[in-house]
Deep mutational scan, measured.
Amino acid sequence: MQRVNMIMAESPGLITICLLGYLLSAECTVFLDHENANKILNRPKRYNSGKLEEFVQGNLERECMEEKCSFEEAREVFENTERTTEFWKQYVDGDQCESNPCLNGGSCKDDINSYECWCPFGFEGKNCELDVTCNIKNGRCEQFCKNSADNKVVCSCTEGYRLAENQKSCEPAVPFPCGRVSVSQTSKLTRAETVFPDVDYVNSTEAETILDNITQSTQSFNDFTRVVGGEDAKPGQFPWQVVLNGKVDAFCGGSIVNEKWIVTAAHCVETGVKITVVAGEHNIEETEHTEQKRNVIRIIPHHNYNAAINKYNHDIALLELDEPLVLNSYVTPICIADKEYTNIFLKFGSGYVSGWGRVFHKGRSALVLQYLRVPLVDRATCLRSTKFTIYNNMFCAGFHEGGRDSCQGDSGGPHVTEVEGTSFLTGIISWGEECAMKGKYGIYTKVSRYVNWIKEKTKLT
């Protein structure tokens, strides 16, 4: 034993070699072989497995989906700052455009905790909710729209109204504003409101030439003092309507412009014939205590009207009353817009006519005020429907199939267009061939041609 100890002390290297040989010859039971080890760690190889990531292109799944990435790591994937920024906006807080917040056709661009709407022409605001041009839906104005110097929408209202708090709607500024039905039992019968379409306001006024200088022999019209197929109006439903009495009662109609003036057809009036105007009328054979009678003290036909040349060209006249009318729910003026808007309103496509005229061709006159909704007829169809001249200051309205029309005794009465609950004068009943005849239409004086003249002559002093 002493000898062994001496050998170990003198030859430590020998001992180490012996131990190493023993270990190498022993069977290893701690580690699995290569094949079995792979069965336990069965993990798919990654895209760049075996390579240094710093030297390969980034992978979106590896960089940002398996674990949260930084902007720089995302930049490695896209290799483009702009594309990385677009991805980053949604990656950080989701897609803010998912709810489609942009209105009126706006395009949404996502941002971090926010979004941006790219608005089409005519709109602005956070969600493109603000109209900035009158060309689109009248700028959301209830009545009139004008573009300011910086191309912003400025709404306005006709006389007797003021802008509401929203700067879009119009509200009454006087007790009985024009064009409004205020009798409670008839307010439910107000005709369907007309909503502004998209309009090209630059070209809204037709490029028409008034044929002022045409000389033409007097034409022989049949029954051209021209509501057939209409309905009984309720008291106060058309408070701007008046009836004219002269040699015979209810020979023509008219509309209240203001307390002192009536507008009617020029062919209705004769110099030297006494005319009485009755406002607030409903049943011409009954006294309903809503009527107001006034005498006409002055007749002003349009300066281009000449019955000797043509009885229905420039067929418009103004009547001055001896005493002002007292405005109330049964006696209310009709609204008159400017030339541009009167023309736009007419193009809405349908209007209402009213009167006490004959209820059928050569038949009896109506006792109760009649009204009828009539569609506008395109000019080409209008011209083809008659052998008589249709001037540019006239328009056609009615039904091709016949059966409904204005008729004798309705002449001078109103053709009105309702705009968001307020009625505007767009025409004056003038003439036609018979009444409600198939293929024939009622012919009306186009008020847009005469609004400046009306307003100039009827100013209240």
Rank of each mutant, 00 (worst) to 15 (best):
V4R: 14
N5A: 15
N5I: 14
E10C: 14
L14T: 04
L14K: 03
L20E: 02
L24T: 06
T29Q: 08
D33Q: 06
D33H: 10
N38A: 11
K39D: 13
E53S: 10
V56L: 08
R62L: 10
R62E: 08
K68I: 10
E76S: 10
E76F: 09
T84Y: 04
F87V: 09
D93P: 08
D93H: 09
E98W: 08
S99E: 10
C102L: 00
S107M: 07
D111E: 06
S114L: 05
C117Q: 00
F123Q: 03
E124P: 02
D131R: 06
C134S: 03
K137P: 06
C145D: 00
K146P: 02
D150M: 11
N151E: 07
C157R: 01
C157Q: 00
T158M: 11
A164P: 02
E165W: 08
S169H: 06
S169L: 05
P175H: 08
P177C: 03
C178Y: 00
S182D: 07
S182V: 09
V183Y: 12
T186L: 05
S187R: 13
T194H: 14
Y201Q: 13
T218S: 13
S220F: 07
F221P: 15
R226Q: 14
V228W: 11
V228G: 05
E231L: 07
D232G: 05
P235L: 08
G236Q: 05
Q241I: 11
N245M: 06
G253W: 09
S255P: 00
V263A: 04
C268H: 01
V269Y: 04
V273M: 13
V278K: 06
V278H: 05
A279C: 03
H282L: 12
H282A: 08
E288H: 06
E288L: 06
T290V: 05
I297M: 08
H314M: 02
V326L: 10
I336C: 02
D338K: 05
F345W: 05
F348S: 14
S350R: 14
Y352G: 04
R358L: 06
F360L: 15
S365D: 11
L369A: 14
Q370F: 02
T381Q: 12
C382S: 02
R384P: 07
K387E: 11
A397Q: 02
F399D: 10
G402S: 15
C407L: 07
G412N: 04
P414E: 03
E418M: 13
E418V: 10
G427W: 00
G432F: 04
E433C: 07
E434V: 10
G439L: 03
S448I: 02
R449N: 15
W453F: 04
E456L: 07
K459S: 15
L460N: 08
